[in-house]
């Protein structure tokens, strides 16, 4: 039976045979190598991307850790500052106490010294006063004796005058 339009099964099969050779050849020689290369490159870039993502994630973790450490350090610094301030206050109080004690001791010593000095001065003053009193008394005595002598002399002279 003749098929219209000169359709020939033999030639259809020849075309199919030819195309199958072409398709196989193109697949193994061109399509597969190029696609493999493209897939390999995509995998390579995906790997780089994943590595970069991992690095980024690690950097973010480190950053968070550092931030946390910084915050901890800040609180620690504040705590240390507070402790140092407290310690300063304690030291200042101790120093003040020491100074107060020292001042009290100095004051006491000064008072004692002053007391001693006063006593010494008093004693010296008393001695001086006594000496002065004695001197004065002596002087008084001398002067009084002079007066008495003069009185006696005057009286004597007056008497003599009267008698004369």
């Amino acid at each position: 039976m003749k098929i219209p339009l000169n359709i020939s099964w033999q030639q259809i099969l020849l075309h199919l045979f030819n195309f199958s050779i072409l398709a196989g050849g193109l697949y193994f020689l061109l399509y597969k190598p190029v696609k493999n290369f493209m897939d390999g490159r995509a995998a390579h870039y995906a790997e780089l991307d994943a590595a970069a993502e991992a690095k980024l994630a690690r950097a973010e973790t480190l950053e968070a850790e550092h931030r946390r450490l910084l915050e901890g350090a800040e609180s620690e610094i504040m705590h240390m500052k507070a402790e140092a301030a407290l310690e300063n206050e304690r030291a200042a109080a101790a120093q003040l106490e020491t100074a107060r004690k020292q001042s009290e001791k100095l004051l006491l010593d000064a008072r004692t010294a002053a007391q001693k000095e006063r006593q010494i001065l008093l004693a010296e003053a008393q001695e001086e006063i006594s000496a002065l009193a004695i001197e004065a008394a002596k002087k008084v005595i001398v002067s009084s004796s002079d007066i008495y002598d003069r009185f006696l002399d005057a009286a004597e002279s007056e008497g003599e005058q009267q008698y004369e």
Binding site: L5, N6, I7, S8, Q11, I12, L13, L14, H15, L16, F19
Partner: peptide, 12 residues
């Protein structure tokens, strides 16, 4: 442009 070739590719 040959119908046999077109049929081959269409059927395939």
């Amino acid at each position: 442009s040959d119908i046999n070739g077109a049929i081959a590719l269409g059927v395939l």
